[in-house]
């Protein structure tokens, strides 16, 4: 029957195209990561794939890379401070605007989210001019403030999303049973939205640790951060330490991701 054959072909070609493209995309997503990890075990002087031999020498070379370690420290310090501030400011902001349908809440929501859409480089440059206009010297503190602006949206988004799932009746019952607002927040609201805040904090941390557009303008030689240092290594003399430090970062990211998935159900909050 030709009709039957047409339907068969229809179903069969559809499956083939969707399945095929999915396989291609999964490969496309994973391939670079695998390549970096394999390259990091290169034994030779220069980057080549496949490597001529395998060794751990470029991992050993990381131990002596003082400048890189200082940059990593700076990054960590800024990321921790920016995340802490983003969580405090973002959670408070989410409580204020997350459950309100007033016009000002909508306006503030768009304002607070806009750093996600604006070119980060433009904001970084604007911040540099602003800081020099105020006559403030660049420091880890100015860098942190710049990072807060671009990290807050992540905390805000996940927290507002979990607030939306919080049944207001719970808050009313708590209040009508005589609990103070602070007590209700600590014992009812916080346990319910804690995972959302946690997921947002994790993404904010990663975003700060990896930020380039803002750091490009707000960090100098003293406050150099890891992504900038890494960018310069890759841009000037592509050495294999770039691969070994990348592999270290990938493994750390994987570990943090698994922890975040366990504690905060990360993957549900990313959407």
């Amino acid at each position: 029957m030709p009709e039957r054959a047409r339907l068969d072909f229809d179903a069969w070609s559809f499956r083939l195209v969707m399945g095929g493209l999915t396989a291609v995309t999964v490969f496309f997503l994973l391939f670079p990561t695998v390549i970096v990890i394999l390259t990091s075990f290169t034994a030779s002087e220069s980057l080549k794939f496949p490597p001529d031999g395998y060794s751990l020498r470029w991992y050993a070379a990381l131990l002596g890379a003082d400048q890189m370690r200082r940059a990593a420290w700076n990054s960590l310090e800024v990321a921790v401070m920016a995340t802490a501030a983003s969580v405090a400011l973002g959670t408070a902001g989410a409580l204020a605007i997350g459950r309100s349908r007033a016009w000002w809440a909508h306006a503030l929501d768009s304002l607070f989210m806009s750093p996600l859409l604006l070119p980060g480089l433009a904001f970084g440059f604007a911040a540099l001019m602003y800081v020099s206009l105020l006559g403030v010297e660049l420091s880890l503190a100015t860098l942190t403030v710049g990072h807060i602006v671009v990290c807050v949206p992540f905390v805000l988004r996940t927290t507002i999303a979990s607030l939306a799932q919080l049944d207001p009746a719970l808050l009313d019952s708590s209040a009508s049973l005589g609990a103070s607002p602070l007590f209700t927040f600590r014992r009812v609201t916080l346990p319910m939205i804690g995972r959302g805040i946690g997921a947002g904090a994790f993404i904010a941390f990663m975003a700060s640790f990896d930020n380039i557009p803002v750091s490009l303008f707000l960090s100098d030689a003293r406050t150099e951060v890891l992504p900038i240092h890494l960018w310069q290594i890759i841009d000037t003399h592509l050495d294999v330490r770039a691969a070994s430090v990348s592999a270290v970062l990938i493994v750390l990211t994987l570990l943090l991701m698994l922890v975040a998935e366990r504690l905060a159900g990360l993957s549900r909050h990313l959407r």
């Binding site: 997503l29 994973l30 391939f31 670079p32 990561t33 390549i35 970096v36 390259t39 980057l47 794939f49 993404i203 990663m206 640790f209 990896d210 380039i212 992504p227 890494l230 960018w231 890759i234 592509l238 770039a242 691969a243 990348s246 970062l249 990938i250 990211t253 994987l254 943090l256 991701m257 990360l266 993957s267 990313l270």
Partner: peptide
Amino acid sequence: VILPILTSVVVRTFAWIVI
């Protein structure tokens, strides 16, 4: 899907230079 978004952009770009 999520792994690449959390891996450093410099690292991801570097991987492509090798490729």
